[in-house]
Nucleic acid binder design. Sequence first.
DNA 1: ATGCCCACGACACGTGGA
Length: 260
Amino acid sequence: MKIASFNVNSLKARLENLKTWLKDADPDVVCLQETKSTDDTFPRSELEDLGYNLAIHGQKTYNGVAILSKFPLEDVRIGLPGDDGDEQARYIEAVIPAGGTVVRVASIYLPNGNPLGTDKFTYKLKWMDRLREHTQTLLTYEEALVLAGDYNIIPKDEDCYDPVAWADDALFHPEAKASFRSLCNLGFTDAFRAFHQGGNRYTFWDYQAGRWQKGQGIRIDHLLLSPQAADRLVACDIDEEPRGREKPSDHTPIWCELKF
DNA sequence: ATGCCCACGACACGTGGA
């Protein structure tokens, strides 16, 4: 089963690009972030026509997450537990039957957190605390679990074209990195790092300053796998091709293959 | 040192992204 994550930076603006990639890459499950569409403007039939079931959590203008799946989507959870007052659409989770068992998949759009020293950074750290709390519960299920999404975290120096330039950014702040490590330390495998070492592999290139053309990106979209999911992991890679197309997202998809 | 580019809402440019 091929499971992917793709921050599309507006589903409306990216629909043709996304459809092209779905036909080319043929993923079974796709976690989308930054759909920037409400549930009633979501292009349902366009994606259903390609064979996908949909679970969506929309919001006007900002955020928005979804899961597309060629297999049924069950037990859909909308929103991250831990703060009923949080209005931002950044989390959706579903259970997908697979090979006589299940895989649980979450689509995550973790807050950016810039600028530092504001309530936006506080919100990011609190959101990460909530994510860790919730995943601790999910891990007790002892299922194959894939936490897929835009984490807005550059884990290490090698995940960034210029660590010095990013030193004072919320994506690279020591507290944010430490929080991400504490999540990983619960027992998750960074699927990409299970196959690829070293630098110069990224999932995001800023539209500005010709970052894509210069090869200057950051690795902030991650697939975190529970032990039971990691047992089944046979491949993982970043697909840079969509970033080089006309009218691209500033992110590109990352995918993994689980054997069932 | 700052802004570069892009999407949105809704038509002018401010907000947010990372």
